[in-house]
Design a protein around this nucleic acid. Structure first.
Length: 614
RNA sequence: GGGGACGUAGCUCAGUUGGUUAGAGCGCUGCCCUGUCACGGCAGAGGUCGCGGGUUCGAGCCCCGUCGUCCCCGCCA
């Protein structure tokens, strides 16, 4: 096949731009052959670029040479078209495409490049399996949906940048090659050639650098920063990901909330969604009590405590443990279940509980018993009140979880375990009946997006295996001042609250932050309370403890996952839909085939030898 | 590290209780077609049933192992 040279030809329009007003205009389009429809002496080429598709007509009588080339053109060939825009005749318009009122009548066609038959067509809606998509990512990214996702991502990032710059934030870059800090996630390590046996680490976040920038007086910093964590992947977790990272000096928490809300409004606006601020606030304890999780999905109704309806004697009758919470919740609009479906569901849930000591109250059956009908009615009334309605509908699925006699108050030292278990059940049933209740459906309006702030996280978490207290957020998070004053850092670690907060959207943690410790003495005390000796603390964070001693202002910040924000805005369920070149669940890049072994020579330069572990 | 789902033509999938030559749609190739837009018509090519082993007269189907992709738990300060 003879290909044409581009020469000095320049395109005049993008393929998605032409409308009836341009009829009569001479244009040059360039792009890929989306589809070819060959009618013999008349050929249609749909030419595609990232803005859309225009139909090009090649008529044998009017442009024989161009028509001949179009006969050779195939899917994904790269072409340039010189021609004239023509308004389509009545009845020939295609209302399904934005350019459907017009077509371009070609007088010249250049075949700029050919293409092998692609393993799947970017023109198809049906999506090839992900393995093939990732291997041929360049073809996958040609798909309209992916083009939209990355255009969206670019707009969102720019809106956030503009907002923060307007608010007086400075964008400052921090190093990718830095120091390993063994706490938290595993580090990706980079061996040093110059210094045998030593390693840089890729940052899990710019945390310490941004705090040092506050010490340096930059006052308001931000960065759209790549972060790296060597942990197992999930649909919403990639080993490298992008955070909108910011830090402010002399902030109250409210300043940080307003800033994050501000850039989220800007980001969502870039996607055509108007958000109302401020977002809902709740404490960690409230989140656990009402939703059984620290990242509540508020598209579903909250859990309701039914303790008041089941006094001790009634608990005895029903063989329910005293003193433990009885929780109910409603999944509205599930539709009335048949008797057998209800029993199957009860069995399924009870099976899921296993031997943990929790059970279900069959409210529908209670209602049929003269003795217990009043209780069933009271439960319905309480749940209706929680929903803010007068009465529940028979379509609403009621679930009431009770602790059986002998149920332990704590599980793995966690007094909140029942709330968490019931919260997990709430999400499980919410997902199971998602199609029926429709609360997860996309309407393209603000109501699709339920944001909330969760505050007052616990400072410490008990690690039952290692028998130690760990920092729940990170060890630079400031505790509440009252908890420091009351000596709880040593006496009662489980009760210490952190000045830490998460921002949650539809049950996904979008970001978290905190007011930091700005005093060296408090920081040293926190390290000690985590079981670190002063020597160990200095070994790991000495440079930072030093820096704290030179006039550190009170400061705090937050980091939000850009990938997750874009994923939710794009209506995607995996980060891979909004990251151009993502990794598989085993952290492989299928396109470039990374990671790979390296040569012995490279290893020798790095003073490394590989050892297989059997 | 653990649990689950999947793996058959380039792609999406079907394939009965283990039984003759493994099928369909799309795509691809050739021919025909001047108004299609998921164009249409005719003809055709295309398979190591992920890989290895086993059971069996006989395996896409059963068993064992292994590899890959996806989802979840652990993990992610």
């Amino acid at each position: 096949m003879t290909l044409d040279f581009l020469g000095t030809l320049q395109r005049t329009q993008m393929c998605g731009e032409l409308r009836a007003e341009q009829a009569g205009q001479d244009v040059v389009l360039m792009g890929w052959v989306n589809r070819r429809r060959d009618h013999g002496n008349l050929i249609f080429l749909d030419v595609r670029d990232r803005t859309g598709i225009t139909q090009v007509v090649l008529d044998h009588e009017q442009a024989g040479e161009a028509h001949a080339k179009a006969e050779a053109a195939r899917s994904e060939f790269v072409v340039a078209v010189k021609g004239r825009v023509r308004r389509r005749a009545a009845g020939l318009e295609n209302p399904n495409m934005p350019t459907g009122e017009i077509e371009v009548v070609a007088n010249e066609l250049l075949l700029l490049n050919e293409s092998k038959t692609p393993p799947f067509s970017p023109a198809e809606d049906a999506i090839a399996n992900e393995e093939v998509r990732l291997k041929y990512r360049y073809l996958d990214l040609r798909r309209t949906e992916m083009q939209h996702n990355f255009a969206l991502r670019s707009r969102v990032a720019m809106a956030i940048r503009n907002f923060l710059v307007d608010e007086g934030f400075l964008e400052i870059e921090t190093p990718f090659m830095t120091r390993s800090t063994p706490e938290g996630a595993r580090d990706y390590l980079v061996p040093s050639r110059v210094h045998a046996g030593t390693f840089y680490a890729l940052p899990q976040s710019p945390q310490i650098f941004k705090q040092i920038l506050m010490i340096s007086g930059f006052d308001k910093y931000f960065q759209i920063a790549r972060c790296f964590r060597d942990e197992d992947l999930r649909a919403d977790r990639q080993p490298e990901f992008t955070q909108i990272d910011l830090e402010m000096s002399f902030p109250q928490m409210e300043n940080i909330f307003r800033t994050a809300e501000g850039f989220l409004v800007a980001a969502f606006n870039a996607a055509g969604i108007k958000l109302t601020t401020p977002f809902v606030h709740m404490t960690y304890d409230e989140a656990i009590k009402n939703y059984g999780i620290d990242k509540p999905d508020m598209r579903l109704p909250a859990m309701v405590s039914l303790d008041d309806l089941l006094p001790p004697d009634l608990r005895t009758t029903l063989k329910i443990e005293q003193g433990l919470p009885i929780l109910g919740f409603v999944i509205p609009g599930v539709g009335e279940l048949s008797g057998s479906a209800r029993k199957a569901l009860l069995n399924e849930v009870r099976g899921g509980f296993g031997d943990c000591g929790l059970d279900l109250l069959d409210v529908v059956r209670l209602r049929t018993s003269p003795d217990f009908a009043p209780l069933a009615d009271a439960i319905s009334a309480a749940l209706a009140k929680g929903l803010g309605v007068d009465a529940l509908s028979p379509d609403d699925l009621i679930t009431v979880v009770t602790p059986k006699l002998g149920t332990p108050a704590k599980w793995n030292h966690d007094p909140q375990w029942i709330y968490k278990r019931v919260g997990a059940l709430r999400l499980q049933l919410g997902t199971k009946y998602a199609e029926k209740h429709g609360r997860f459906a996309k309407t393209g309006t603000e109501s699709d997006f339920k944001f909330c702030w969760v505050t007052d996280f616990p400072m410490y978490e008990w690690d039952e295996e290692a028998k130690v207290w760990n920092a729940a957020h990170h060890p630079f998070t400031s505790p509440h001042e009252e908890d420091i004053k009351a000596g709880r850092l040593t006496n009662d670690k489980g009760a210490v609250r952190a000045l830490a907060y998460d921002i949650v959207l539809n049950g996904t943690e979008l970001g978290s932050g905190s007011i930091r410790i700005h005093r060296q003495d408090v920081q040293a005390e926190i390290f000690r309370s985590l079981g670190m000796t002063d020597e160990e603390a200095h070994e790991r964070f000495g440079f930072f403890l030093d820096a704290l001693e030179y006039g550190t202002p009170p400061h705090g910040g937050i980091a939000l996952g850009l990938d997750r924000i874009v994923m939710i805005l794009a209506g995607a369920t995996s980060l891979r839909e909004v990251i151009a070149f993502p990794k598989t669940a085993k952290a492989i890049d299928l396109m470039v085939d990374a990671p790979t072994p390296v040569s012995d020579l490279q290893l020798r330069d790095l003073h490394l030898r590989t050892v297989s572990r059997s």
